[in-house]
């Protein structure tokens, strides 16, 4: 049981994949490839982002997210991850086709949920 618990606790988890996904999202935003950045969001987040009659890419462009910056840390628990970059904190979820961004442009609010420019 303890071995199972340790195995499931993510002790040897690969944190590079969510880090790459977070960096890729910010790289796409910085390069004004908003369509590509929208494709890296979870479906729920991409659906919620635009106002009525607006597309995801236009909504993302309007937000003018700041630069992501270098990788600071990654916390990975189960199928969820938090990636801290120098200029942003992102939350990601693992799907069968890879990691997708659930929330970006996030500011900490103490122990309360982060306030994010992009979230589901």
């Amino acid at each position: 049981m303890l071995a199972l618990a340790l195995a499931t606790a993510g002790c040897a988890a690969d944190t590079s994949a969510p880090a790459r996904a977070a960096a890729g999202f910010h790289a796409a935003v910085a390069a004004h490839r908003e369509e590509a950045a929208c494709a890296m969001l979870t479906r729920k987040t991409a659906d919620k982002l635009p106002d009525p009659g607006q597309g995801c890419a236009d909504a993302l462009r309007e937000l003018r997210l700041g630069a992501g910056g270098g990788l600071v840390s990654v916390s990975l628990w189960g199928d969820d991850a938090q990636v801290r970059l120098a200029g942003d904190t992102l939350f990601l979820h693992r799907f069968s086709d890879g990691w997708r961004v659930r929330a970006a442009g996030c500011r900490p609010m103490g122990d309360l949920p982060y306030e994010c420019e992009v979230e589901d």
Partner: peptide
């Protein structure tokens, strides 16, 4: 150990720090 992992997964889902 398992509880921390499950709890942190939930917290990340709620956009909170682990």
């Amino acid at each position: 150990v398992a509880g921390q992992a499950a709890y942190n997964s939930e917290r990340l889902g709620d956009l909170r720090d682990p």
